[in-house]
């Protein structure tokens, strides 16, 4: 009797978490959720360009749809949690899996983006904290009730703008590897379509970063003045 036959009955989903591969799958799914959110977030934020009045109306509209509003909150919070639960622990485990480093190392396939997922991820985490704090008015500069004004005042200070741009660069790198990687993790591998995985990751990563940066810049009066 081989003992493998016994395990087949173990189909309960919670046991999935025990497998590093499944944890990675959950991370990939949460990544997809976060990317989808980023697009929605950007689309909503384009209202910023229409001025404070329009933006406040958008916020009011959101609050009138609590299911959408809080639903999104809960989903992205969960996705972030999954990301945070898997990413750092895997990163640590991976470091421990090679106790003695190579003295000479030559990479042939991996990218800088892939090797710095932890750096870009932590940068993003920092950015998200600052971003939320700024919007909520928790930061010293320009604390007010108006999300719009909190943003605008923030962008008049170069460290905030720089952090925003940095955050977006980190995002681009994170997605350059993350989006490509999630195809692998989720098992989407096909000789005919593989060639599109990397371009897709580039488009998504650069795309979302570019759109966000554009939005930030367009919210800076000086930039708008120049453009006008």
């Amino acid at each position: 009797m081989s003992k493998s036959t016994v395990i087949t009955r173990d189909t309960a989903l919670p046991s999935a978490w025990r497998y590093s591969v499944m944890r990675k799958v959950f991370m990939a799914i949460s990544g997809m959720v976060l990317v989808a959110f980023l697009f929605g977030h950007w689309a909503g934020n384009t209202v910023l360009l229409d001025g404070e009045l329009a933006f406040n109306e958008y916020l009011v509209w959101l609050q009138r749809h609590p299911i959408l509003h809080y639903g999104v909150w809960i989903v992205i919070a969960m996705a972030l949690l999954v990301h945070l639960a898997v990413g750092p622990s895997h990163w640590l485990k991976n470091r421990r899996a090679r106790p003695e480093r190579y003295y000479k190392r030559k990479y042939r396939a991996t990218t800088w983006a892939a090797r710095t997922m932890m750096v870009s991820g932590l940068t993003l985490l920092l950015f998200i904290c600052v971003h939320v704090a700024q919007v909520r008015g928790w930061l010293v500069f320009g604390a007010s009730d108006s999300v719009f004004r909190n943003l605008q005042t923030g962008f008049t200070r170069w460290p905030v703008t720089t952090l925003y741009v940095l955050g977006q660069v980190a995002l681009a790198f994170h997605l350059y590897h993350g989006v490509w990687s999630l195809f692998q993790t989720l098992g989407a591998h096909h000789p005919r379509y593989n060639q599109w995985r990397r371009p897709f990751a580039v488009v998504v990563g650069l795309g979302i970063a570019f759109l966000n940066i554009a939005l930030v810049l367009l919210n800076i009066d000086a930039v708008r003045a120049v453009l006008r």
């Binding site: 944890r23 990675k24 042939r108 396939a109 892939a114 993790t185 098992g187 989407a188 591998h189």
Partner: peptide
């Protein structure tokens, strides 16, 4: 360690086994 999709393995594999196998394994799990 855990696969982070660096694809170094397939470049080093003397038998040129490709990372499509890993995608398939993930799917199977």
């Amino acid at each position: 360690g855990h696969c982070s999709n660096h694809a170094e393995c397939q470049s080093a594999c003397p038998k040129e086994i490709d990372i499509g196998r890993i995608a398939r394994m993930n799917r199977d799990l």
